[in-house]
Design a protein around this nucleic acid. Structure first.
Lengths: 232, 232
DNA sequence: AACATCCACTTGTCCGATAAGCTTATAGGC
DNA sequence: GCCTATAAGCTTATCGGACAAGTGGATGTT
């Protein structure tokens, strides 16, 4: 049962799935045969139940395809579930950076549109929570971790106002991207005060229910964040 | 082991997960205790392995949370994975219609932006494939099923040109939404010729690498589709 | 060469047992 | 009486072995 020495951070199937996923993602091979239950048993020394669950995890990420009687096959990488926090963590560094850059590009498309819609649907409660978050951000500019959490909540609160569960889901995934992004690039503590200013600009546009202004404020905010936080 | 009479369309865990998911989605309850392994064993008469896999499926949709020693808990419906084709099929009709409407609203946000980006990245191969698809659509206007597949491929091909795997993933999910949408509303055979015209307008804008025009053509196309294909 | 049969391999499902973690209740000490 | 600590009982995690069911290729026949 793997190495008894190592600390148990995650469930066994997830650890096995992680090793397999990294291997698949690094190899770049696609379309061929994937790992079979038997191979996993022998290589990792785990029970068949664990091997099966590990494969099920990879299947839920659309990395492999499982069918009775047939061998596991590797699915094309273009269709993997890059919205899953699991997959993000298992990608090799270069691919991870690429995905995070693409995720940010997608934010620049979606979030201004969200802000525009939200401006028209904002309730008093939404605005109150945004105001509270803004004050907390202003007071947390010396704590990058706390600030990030408030930042994420701020954007999520705006999305909630747009009342669209598909967009909600996108923002939910965005949470993991940004946490991963911060893990690999620990800079931008100096940018926090200016970030608060930009958030305030968004807030005030929403307060005035000015869709155009909210959209533009959000776009400016995200474009500047690109230049600061991510590699070219 | 359930009813031996019924045909085996899907794997057993998935069937069980479907029943449980429908029950959870219909009840509207959230935050409380979810189904335990023992309860599933007794109610469905399946083995523990099947019960566990069924729960794992629900967990992969973010519908429940599983942890050793603790009982399964129901997660808030706002964070379910509405991008999954499984969940879509398991929602009660009203919720399904709501989600499909929200999905279409999201398409109107994202796809025009995709078209604008794609216009600048279009390769000769992309344009050739689009042209082929367009011709096939024109010849399939009497076959709604075939037309839908070509339609989906057309939009996907444009997205591919934008070279963004997050957007790719979104379009991949969009595939299931539209197939579900067609399943519940079987109209719009008369709209196919005009749909081809709109697709051609998009194609020509891309051919001219005119981002603004492609964006606007895509937006018009999707807005008209809204009025025809979905309930208000 | 075409076709039917059989066999080996793979995944699906079942059963029973032990380990590990959490919650609650109970017993003890203060 | 209140608090703490231990223990009991529930939950999920992992193991091992067995058989069923489906697929694909090898085999063999016509």
């Amino acid at each position: 049962m793997m190495d008894a020495m190592e600390v148990k951070l995650q469930t066994l199937p997830r650890q096995v799935a992680g090793v397999l996923a990294r291997r698949i993602a690094s190899s770049g091979v696609t379309g061929g045969q994937g790992p079979s239950e038997q191979q996993i048993l022998q290589e990792f020394g785990v029970s068949r139940a664990v091997a099966r669950e590990a494969l099920k995890i990879l299947a839920s990420l659309d990395m492999i395809e499982i069918a009775q009687g047939r061998r596991v096959v590797l699915r094309p990488a273009e269709e993997w579930d890059y919205l899953s926090p699991l997959l993000i963590d298992w990608l090799p560094p270069e691919q991870m950076r690429e995905i995070l850059a693409e995720a940010h590009a997608t934010r620049i498309i979606i979030e201004p549109a969200i802000a525009a819609i939200a401006a028209k649907h904002m309730t008093k409660e939404n605005l109150e929570r945004l105001g509270t978050l803004l004050a907390a951000m202003s007071a947390s500019e010396d704590n990058a971790d706390a600030y990030l959490k408030l930042d994420l909540d701020f954007h999520m609160e705006i999305c909630r106002a747009a009342q669209n569960r598909i967009l909600d889901r996108f923002m939910y995934s965005s949470r993991w991207w940004q946490m991963a992004s911060r893990r690999i690039s620990n800079q931008m503590p100096h940018a926090l005060p200016s970030a608060t200013e930009m958030h305030r600009a968004i807030y005030e546009a929403l307060l005035a229910r000015d869709a155009k202004r909210a959209e533009e404020a959000m776009r400016r905010h995200l474009k500047i964040t690109t230049a600061v936080g991510l590699p070219p």
